[in-house]
Simulated assay, not measured.
Amino acid sequence: MTNVKLLEQFRSFYFRNYPDDMETQIEYFAIFGGLGLEIDTTQPITFLIEDLIIQNFDMYNEKIGQLVMEESNNKRLLTALAVGDRRIFSAFNRAGLNNANGGSALNFLQEKGLIQIEYSREEPAKSLNPNGKLKKEIARHRISHKVLFTYPFIRFWFYFIYPHIRDIKNGDYEKLFKNFETKQNSYTSLVFEELSEVLLNYNLRDAQILSSGSYWDAKIEIDILTVTDDERVYVAECKWTNHRVNKSELHKLQEKCEKLDIEPSQTILFSKRGFSKELKQMQGKSLALYSSEDFESLVKNASNTELINHLFDSNV
């Protein structure tokens, strides 16, 4: 199902700022998405972070504090969700929360509209023998749902800004920007994955989508698994890296499908920087390839007059 709010924010960012290309659009949107600011996307992203965010740190820190009711558990959970694997139970552990206070914080943040739950599609493990018992490591495995941030900027704040809050207050930004330089691509990968699902489902808009999102279990993760009512299955992997994706990534995805006993109607690869010649020659009905420029279709036929609620609008 298309993430309507993310798509609206993506379009709003584009029509407000008109970046030169879709790679720039995605990269800058992953940080400033949801703020409703005018961004000069010809400027280096680190310059904009310092100029627009760091120099207005007190204002944003106060506004975000108000959103989370200045509750430390809410901030700790948001940080754990931002930097971790998004699984709820592991986020509780990382934040030092238990099921009670962690669940309370999770419910608050969900009701506030800052996060949304991505429900697991993993089936509970069962013994092949009706009277048999599962192995201990399998029996101990807990199916965990994941969390997505509603606004990219909130995730950026708790991924990069909040962990360095003391240094920032002291005027020291060195660790923040060193961390950003190291982790920018891995950080942007999740937003790219979310937008890739939006693009896939946008292209499938004439079909009835029964289920869509990432798939994970104890051993396997697939970035996107979409199923339509005519029993067509689409699987996809998303790579936000500075090199072209090659055939090995296709093989990895095919191996995952075999382990899950899935026969996809179409396999899809999304790439920041395109694909090897060998992969391009394999394109067809069973394999689709999307690069950054293909995301232009999400804004091409949209209206630039639409008004949406941004993060700090009074009714958010």
Rank of each mutant, 00 (worst) to 15 (best):
I49E: 00
R155D: 09
R94E: 04
L298I: 04
F153A: 06
A288D: 10
R94N: 06
Q281W: 12
E23P: 10
I161R: 06
G84W: 03
Y119F: 11
A207F: 13
E258K: 14
G34P: 04
H310F: 08
N315M: 10
R140M: 10
K75M: 08
P124W: 06
D229K: 12
R166H: 06
V68K: 00
S212T: 07
W240C: 08
E255K: 11
G113K: 01
S291C: 03
R273E: 12
R166F: 09
I115R: 01
N129R: 10
K63M: 15
D20F: 13
D58M: 10
E71A: 12
H251S: 15
L7V: 04
E237I: 06
E71R: 14
A218Q: 14
N203E: 13
G96W: 04
E296S: 13
G102V: 00
S248M: 11
R155N: 01
L7S: 10
E193M: 05
E293D: 08
N107D: 13
P264F: 03
P130L: 05
Y187I: 04
T305K: 15
A100W: 11
L287M: 02
G33H: 02
N101L: 04
L250R: 03
K169E: 03
L269V: 04
K183Y: 14
L52R: 15
S90E: 03
V245C: 07
G284D: 09
G34L: 00
E258L: 13
N246E: 10
N179Y: 12
N93M: 06
F29Q: 01
W240R: 06
L81C: 05
L311M: 04
E23A: 12
H164W: 01
E255T: 10
K252Y: 03
N201Y: 08
L199Y: 00
P152K: 00
I220Y: 06
S144N: 02
F13C: 01
Y202D: 12
S214H: 11
S196R: 03
N129D: 11
I308K: 09
V233P: 11
P152R: 07
Y151Q: 02
L260C: 02
P264R: 10
Y18A: 10
V227Y: 14
S303Y: 07
L134W: 05
P163C: 09
D167E: 12
F153M: 08
K178Q: 14
D217S: 01
N246R: 13
T182V: 12
D223V: 08
K280N: 12
L311I: 00
A95P: 05
L250N: 10
Y60T: 05
G171M: 01
E111P: 01
D172W: 06
E27A: 13
N61E: 12
L109S: 05
Q66E: 14
N301C: 01
L289R: 08
G171Q: 08
E23N: 13
E278Y: 08
R76W: 04
E123L: 14
T2R: 15
T79Q: 06
G84H: 04
L114N: 05
L97T: 05
S127I: 07
K178T: 15
I31Q: 07
L279A: 00
L109C: 03
Y28G: 05
A207P: 00
E231M: 15
I209K: 07
S271P: 06
N107G: 13
F160Q: 10
L67P: 09
E194L: 14
H164D: 02
F158T: 03
L97G: 04
R142Q: 14
A100K: 15
E249T: 11
I143C: 03
